[in-house]
Amino acid sequence: MFQFSPGAKRYEVLIIGGGPAGATAALYTARAGLSTLVIDKGLTAGALGTTSRIVNYPGVPGPISGAELVRLMRDQAASFGAEFVNDKALRAELTGEEKKVWGGQGVYLGQAVIIATGAMGRARFVPGEERLLGRGVSYCATCDGAFFRGRQVAVAGNNDEAVEEALTLTRFASRVHFLSPTPELHASPHLAEELHSHALVSFYPAARLQEVIGAETVEAVRFTSAGQEQVIPVEGVFIYLQGNMPVTDFLDGQLPTSEGGCLLVDSNFQTAIPGVFAAGDVLCKHLKQAVIAAAEGAQVAMAVDRYLHGREKLRPDWSK
């Protein structure tokens, strides 16, 4: 019932995002003896985590689920002392010697930061979403579920987070309308099963949320499912949709990006701010493969190690 996260904890390396790039970076920094914290939203939050069948990660013929592959990478990083916290980075202050990252559960301090948040951010709001935020639109069922006791709500999403939040809402709402953007859920089988068999949940496959309707507060959602437009009266809308934009919103424009919103780094994976690095899909420079992201994770970690130990950059060694 009581949760306590002591104020600011200091680490040598903060890694935001625990996908293949972040988890591999953590493996390398932790193994190099650097105190390391990975801030991550959960196993199925990222691109790899939502992939159901991986067969081309070298040495793991599989098929293996993306979530399982990520879990293996994280376990390995943890075995060398990397810590993981289930939290979402909300903002960051990156200039200065000590970098600060605020999550929902507190502030995290680090000497170096690796941004490996991936590229599953949403590009834009649906009409009505921003205007009705806090007026029935929510991104946190555990926070706000209690305000919808005995009412009808909609949940839009298809990953573990969306399903878990929908199940939380069944404790309060009279009915949960689940709008999955895909025909099938991209969630763990046991969660999907629980959702599908729940008496209070109506499932709409391949449902595209078009609009949140309401004057002062949410009154309905408009969406298309199987080509048919529908409007369902609800008082709450909980949105867990993903897109394909680099996730950089928490940076508040502190770091230069390309036109497409991708973070820009030098050949050592360092951004314009010393001590702040980035790797993986958030750079949008590579082909989206787990092993390539992992390779970048190793490279960025080695660059961070050198940064923290006063070496400007990696240099080749030709000495005999």
């Binding site: 591999t24 081309n56 070298p58 590579h286 082909l287 493969q289 092993v291 390539i292 992992a294 390779a295 970048e296 994770g297 190793a298 490279q299 080695m302 990696l314 240099r315 080749p316 060694d317 030709w318």
Partner: peptide, 19 residues
Amino acid sequence: DPLYRQIVVAAGTGAIAAM
């Protein structure tokens, strides 16, 4: 690669080269 010389980095470049 005179710089990194890590198995995973080598594997990553292998994937890129094949693609």
